[in-house]
Simulated scan of single mutants.
Amino acid sequence: MNITTNFGAPMRNSVRLAGMILCAATLAFTATACGGNTEAAKDNASSQETHREASRGQAITAVDPWIKAAGAGDTHAMTAAFMTLKNSTDDPVELVSATVEGAELIELHETVADDHGATIMRKVDGGFEIPAQGERILEPGGEHIMLMELSADFVAGDVVDITLGFASGEELVVPATVREFSGAQEEYAHEETAKQGEHGHEDHDSDH
């Protein structure tokens, strides 16, 4: 009996010691695993944020941006920029401004017919809304970005940066190619009776 009792005590101590070692090892593994998960979570969050930033950068894209060739010394010294703006987000985005080096005054314009049937180019109040998951086309004879008071020539073949400004405060720099455009030979004559920001077109095809 004594032998059994004396033998049993060391065994219990060994089991207890083994249990403590196992517990400590388990705690160490858990701490390491948690630390690894934390680092993995941080890496994953960073990756997701980078993806979101990249997505925001690609949210608005300009397809086929171009500017009609014109010279600073031309009559009225005006020209226009055109493109298709695509919005890949789930919210509408509003274009409110644009800047181009070589044009001192830039406005967002629409082309409409007045009460007499004449084509009128009119400044837009507010901006151009690009619908969620949609697009807005800026084209000759329609909505466009009007470049006025030119201080530089826009020569066919040149590439000119257009900085688009949105209501959110974000900007998008768009490289636009300057092109000759035969449909843009109309006169840009300011009408004394027109509203401020409106210009009359003397032509009949309403192209810019």
Rank of each mutant, 00 (worst) to 15 (best):
Ser151Ala: 07
Phe82Gln: 02
Glu171Gln: 14
Ile137Trp: 08
Ala33Arg: 10
Glu39Thr: 06
His51Gly: 02
Val155Glu: 13
Cys23Ile: 15
Thr75His: 08
Gly142Pro: 00
His199Asn: 13
His51Met: 14
Ala59Ser: 12
Leu105Trp: 14
Ala59Met: 15
Phe154Ser: 07
Phe82Ala: 03
Ala152Met: 12
Ala54Ile: 01
Gly200Thr: 12
Thr119Val: 08
Ile145Val: 13
Ala132Trp: 01
Ala81Arg: 07
Thr26Tyr: 11
His208Gln: 06
Leu108Thr: 00
Gly126Pro: 04
Gln185Arg: 04
Ala81Lys: 07
Ser206Phe: 04
Leu17Thr: 11
Glu180Asp: 15
Ile130Ser: 00
Asp115Gln: 09
Asp74Met: 01
Ala25Glu: 11
Lys123Phe: 03
Asn37Glu: 06
Gly141Lys: 04
Glu94Lys: 13
Ser14Phe: 14
Gly57His: 11
Ile3Ala: 14
Glu107Thr: 12
Gly57Met: 08
Thr111Trp: 10
Glu191Ile: 05
Lys195Pro: 03
Leu22Phe: 12
Arg56Tyr: 11
Met121Lys: 05
Gly157Gln: 08
Gly183Val: 00
Ala54Asp: 07
Thr89Glu: 08
Asn37Val: 08
Val155Ala: 12
Glu171Gly: 09
Val93Pro: 04
Ala62His: 05
Thr193Lys: 10
Ser47Arg: 12
Asp158Cys: 07
Thr79Gln: 05
Asp114Glu: 05
Asp114Ile: 01
